[in-house]
């Protein structure tokens, strides 16, 4: 098995699955081309995350990430939640396989989008769709890593010289 026990626990018994119908903020990341999709729903009360739920299409780690993210975020103030990173989630899961770090570990991104959606709504900005990030962003200061062996590679690389893997267009 490639996953830690904590990951398997959150995968098998995911916390906070579902939809909040009258959510105060919704954030969606990923697309099926990337492999994973996550939607985070927030209920905010007195500047605090009162309730949080998720929906995820994805692999074991994507579901575990979503579940762990909701556990971390629940009860936090908006300011506290804003500081939650993807790394925090991966650390709480006692690590994720290297090749999953970049494709499945999107929970905190979805949370930040949901918070932004909440704040936009408060400021009177409305949009028909949930706050959504279509493409996987390159968030490593322009530096990419091979999803197979994790060595640093150029953003335009189509082949990893270190591990001889072809990378196609979608490496992160």
């Amino acid at each position: 098995m490639i996953y830690s026990q904590v990951v398997m626990d959150h995968f098998k018994n995911p916390r906070n699955v579902g939809v909040i119908e009258d959510a105060d903020g919704v954030g969606e990341v990923g697309n099926p081309l990337c492999g994973d999709m996550m939607t985070i729903y927030l209920k905010i009360n007195d500047n605090r995350i009162d309730d949080i739920k998720f929906q995820t299409f994805g692999c074991g780690s994507a579901i575990a990430v979503s579940s762990m993210l909701t556990e971390i975020a629940k009860g936090k103030t908006i300011d506290e939640a804003r500081k939650i990173t993807n790394k925090d989630v991966a650390d709480a899961l006692e690590g994720l396989p290297k090749n999953k770090l970049h494709c499945s570990n999107l929970g905190a991104d979805a949370l930040q989008l949901a918070i932004k959606d909440y704040e936009d709504r408060k400021a009177g900005i409305t949009r028909p769709e949930p706050a959504r990030k279509e493409e996987h962003e390159h968030t490593h200061d322009g530096q990419c890593r091979c999803p197979y062996c994790d060595v640093e590679i150029s953003e335009k690389a189509s082949f990893c010289d270190a591990c001889q893997h072809e990378l196609g267009d979608e490496h992160h």
Binding site: P14, V17, G18, V19, M37, M38, Q55, T56, F57
Partner: peptide, 8 residues
Amino acid sequence: RNMSPLYK
């Protein structure tokens, strides 16, 4: 499927 945003 209950967990999936695509199904909804």
